[in-house]
């Protein structure tokens, strides 16, 4: 790329930053105050952490689509994953293997805790799923877990479970009047059910994004 084009791009980027800065320094007072509305309805949401309430109740529909995005990314990665030229993987250090064996069960425990605490404090399905996925990656790096070329039926079911449970709950409560309108008394339980399914599926999906991309042993 020529110097002139590069200079133009830098100028464009700097101009955008300047415009953004100017716009931010001259903002009106917002006409709508959502934090107050969230606080007012928190008692009806089924959880007492406001971010979880927004994620899994007030704007749960965003989260549902986002789970689909994550699964879709894995489907895209799987479509690309071809058995690469078999490359002899260096055997993992025994210390790493021992450590991974030791830490992995602990990580599952932490994931369970994060899932449970999400209703009251920072935590929830995504954080728990990320820890699960990290355990999977660790086991893979230690050579204790094989890479997947094509996941089998059971694994595909596990990957899809979170989204399927979410969709099923979303339409099961249509009788209340609209999509994802939980009956107030059951909201907490339904959110925990959705989050439990999501934890498993998100953990598998995130791990799969890594495991499906690595070399397959002969």
């Amino acid at each position: 790329m020529s110097r002139a084009v590069a200079a133009l791009v830098v100028l464009l980027a700097a101009g955008l930053a300047a415009a953004l800065g100017l716009a931010m320094l001259d903002l009106p007072e917002p006409a709508v105050r959502l934090p107050a509305r969230v606080a007012a309805k928190l008692g009806d949401s089924g959880v007492d952490h406001p971010v979880t309430a927004v994620l899994l109740n007030f704007r749960a529909y965003d989260t549902l689509l986002e789970v689909a995005v994550l699964l879709l990314a894995l489907v895209g990665v799987l479509a690309l994953a071809r058995p690469h030229a078999a490359r002899a993987a260096a055997p993992a250090h025994p210390l790493l293997q021992t450590l991974a064996r030791l830490v992995a069960p602990l990580m599952v425990l932490v994931a369970g805790y994060l899932l449970w605490i999400g209703a009251h404090a920072p935590g929830g399905a995504f954080q728990a799923g990320a820890v699960l996925a990290a355990a999977g990656v660790l086991l893979r790096l230690a050579g204790l877990l094989p890479a997947w070329a094509q996941p089998g039926l059971l694994l595909r079911g596990g990957l899809a479970l979170g989204l399927l449970v979410f969709v099923a709950v979303a339409v099961a409560v249509l009788g209340q009047g609209s999509l994802l309108q939980y009956p107030p008394a059951a909201a907490g339980g339904l959110i925990l059910l959705i989050e439990a399914g999501l934890t498993l599926s998100i953990g598998l999906t995130l791990a799969g994004l890594y495991l499906a991309g690595t070399e397959v042993e002969p």
Partner: peptide, 9 residues
């Protein structure tokens, strides 16, 4: 909490 949840998404 609303933009925080949006950013998590």
């Amino acid at each position: 909490p609303v933009p925080q949840a949006m950013v998590l998404t």
